[in-house]
Design a protein around this nucleic acid. Structure first.
Length: 583
RNA sequence: GGCCCCUUAGCUCAACUGGAUAGAGCACUCGCCUUCUAAGCGAGAUGUUGCAGGUUCGAGUCCUGCAGGGGCCGCCA
């Protein structure tokens, strides 16, 4: 149950009744009415701007209109008071039993509390990670992986049908370089001495494993053949090998993709030609010469006619080339095909999670999606800003060139999957963040993961001490919902229930804005409210959850504890973190 | 040179997509504490939201310009 929806229905019903009574004109536009929690709890439980939005069409002053609605909306039961404040806000206060009902809803709905029908089963494709298959995932991939995965889970909870997809860049020059680099390691595995890795090859030691595996499978078969013979099979072998590692690393992080899309397969099956044809049919291609980028002219720049896409018609800054000088497709052309393919698979809503290095690419991709789907497809792109890896305040040096970058696997092994996942959501995606190995392992109030986990474990501890409570889950829910909630009237008890009541709304707003970090922040707030209640018991034993000589009071409080624990657990699981029973 | 993101308390960051007196944590000061779980609790103080304009009942949020930080900028992906 969603108290904001409840209040919203009450308010619109009241306005409708006033229209019917001709107090207000008919056919008012109610779409801009907001019903939300006021920032300051002293203003009430629910606030609405309806009087300010409707004032002009209704021909009334906002405060007068608000007062008229206030008078009619109060029923002394669910809405116990309505006040006009400021320029015309309508502040509602809900009856305590509304909150008690929320508590029962949390208990009976369990992990389904907060599920929303908002998505109405609409299909959404979330593409994330999509790292090149030329090496293991490194630390910088963690953020996109976690943000994408949590967003996907969030959208599922909000009622969307989600496909989690990884786009494998297995078609460009980089995978040819991978093949050649692997071939060196293959010869090495066959006994040759490789003095130095030539310039332009991948030097990473991880390719030794790949070379050795190839030698183990095929022996010396490729060694003396010309490159044209071995390039494709070695490339395929290396990609398969590295993708298997990438999948294993993702699994280690708790990320399970639904689908892996191959760029090469897309190209070979004619997907790019189709996208090209679609653009050509729309008259969106022409041959032209681009200006060199100002202030940074490449040394070998020479004006050259190219096949260009009219990206500027769709909000981009310049038109973009689709073919390289050797006649092959640009990465952009392939990616257009990738997105057209998504669209044709039924995914009109697409979300891509990208790293900061791709930020300059956003406009053209959105332009392309708009063009190639004739406006039918919508692409949202979330840019994950850089993560600065630190250890106790000192930057962790990473050099991809030297091949000594920190792998994703290293980070997971070092701090644990749960910590990594949670921390990656403690910043908005478009904000850069520090990740300090020492700090995230710290067990203190400063560490948000610890703080939230501790709240869950504390709740579990209380429930373990509750002697009367049935152990069987169904019986326990029945026992807790049957508790007399009239014992829960203290302001901070109600405050905790109000935080719980905000969960369904948080799911919807986070899903709508594609911002999974809000879950982590919400859990921090919820944990704070719970710890606050706990701490009341330190000074006054009567304020503890379990009061020995007051079984009915205890039972009601246990219902609150269990409800808080349940929402914390649901929230943690939603972002892929396992709640702990003990710490 | 161009484009994108960012700039909020001393520090690290929020702010429910335009709402009311901009909030947390850390650090700081004072007091308390050893528990249903020890890794703490309570109280206090903290602001020209980078700067200058604009839009409107109302702007941290939207539009323009400027400054600073980061990222990117045809034939890499």
């Amino acid at each position: 149950m969603n108290v904001f929806a409840l209040a919203s229905e009450k308010l619109t019903a009241t306005v409708a009744a006033m229209c019917a009574d001709k107090v207000l004109p008919a056919a008012l536009d109610l779409s801009r009415i907001a019903v939300e929690a006021p920032r300051d709890p002293s203003h009430g439980d629910v606030a609405s701007n309806l009087a300010m939005v409707l004032a002009k069409p209704a021909g009334m002053k906002p405060r007068d209109l608000a007062a008229a609605v206030a008078e009619r909306v109060v029923d002394g039961h669910e809405i116990v008071s309505a006040d006009v404040a400021g320029p015309g806000f309508l502040n509602l206060r809900l009856g305590d039993h509304v909150w008690w009902r929320v508590l029962d809803a949390v208990l009976t709905e369990g992990r389904h509390f907060g599920d929303s029908a908002m998505g109405a089963g609409r299909k959404v494709l979330v593409e994330y990670v999509s790292a090149n298959p030329t090496g293991p995932l490194h630390a910088a991939h963690a953020r996109g992986a976690v943000v994408g995965d949590a967003l996907a889970a969030l959208l599922i909870k909000a009622g969307y049908e989600v496909l989690k997809e990884y786009y494998i860049n297995d078609a460009g020059a980089q995978v040819d370089t991978l093949a050649r680099s692997t071939f060196l390691r293959y010869r090495e595995a066959l006994g040759e001495t490789i003095d130095a890795i030539p310039e332009g090859y991948y030097p990473g030691a991880y390719l030794r494993d790949v070379g050795a595996a190839l030698a183990a499978r095929d022996g010396a078969r490729w060694r003396d053949m010309p490159e044209a013979e071995w390039l494709a099979p070695v490339r395929a072998f290396a990609i398969d090998h590295l993708m298997a590692e990438i999948r294993a690393d993702l699994a280690h992080l708790g990320v399970e993709m639904d689908h892996f899309a191959s760029e090469r397969q897309l190209v070979e099956s004619g997907g790019v030609d189709e996208a090209f044809a679609a653009l050509e049919t729309g008259g969106l291609l022409y041959t032209g010469v681009l200006e060199p980028p100002k202030g940074k002219t490449p040394e070998d720049w020479e004006p050259r006619p190219q096949t260009l896409f009219r990206a500027t018609d769709f909000g981009d800054d310049v038109d973009r080339p689709l073919k390289k000088s050797d006649g092959s497709w640009t990465y952009f052309a392939n990616d257009i095909a990738n997105h057209l393919d998504k669209y044709r698979r039924g995914y009109g809503d697409m979300i891509n999670i990208w790293g900061a290095d791709h930020a300059g690419y956003v406009k053209r991709m959105k332009a392309a999606v708009s063009a190639v789907t004739d406006g039918g497809g919508v692409l949202d792109i979330k840019i994950c800003q850089l993560v600065h890896m630190m250890d106790d305040g000192k930057p962790v040096r990473m050099s991809k060139r030297a091949g000594n970058f920190v792998t994703l696997r290293d980070v997971i092994d070092s701090v644990g999957r749960d910590v990594l996942r949670f921390i990656m959501l403690t910043r908005r995606n478009d904000q850069s963040m520090e990740f300090d190995f020492a700090k995230v392992r710290e067990q203190s109030r400063d560490n948000p993961v610890f703080y939230v986990q501790y709240a869950h474990a504390r709740a579990a501890s209380v429930l373990r001490h509750a002697g009367d409570m049935p152990a069987d889950p169904a019986a326990r829910v029945a026992w807790l919902t049957a508790a007399d909630k009239r014992h829960l009237t203290a302001p901070d008890e109600l405050a905790l229930i109000k935080v719980l009541a905000g969960w369904p709304r948080l799911i919807e707003s986070a899903a709508e804005s594609h911002e999974p970090h809000r879950i982590a922040f919400y859990l921090g707030d919820l944990a704070a409210a719970f710890h606050g209640l706990w701490n009341r018991g330190r000074d006054d034993a009567r304020l503890r959850f379990i009061v020995d000589d007051a079984p009915e009071l205890t039972r009601a409080r246990l219902a609150l504890v269990r409800a808080a624990q349940s929402v914390i657990a649901t929230g943690l699981r939603l972002i892929g973190v396992e709640p702990v029973e003990e710490m």
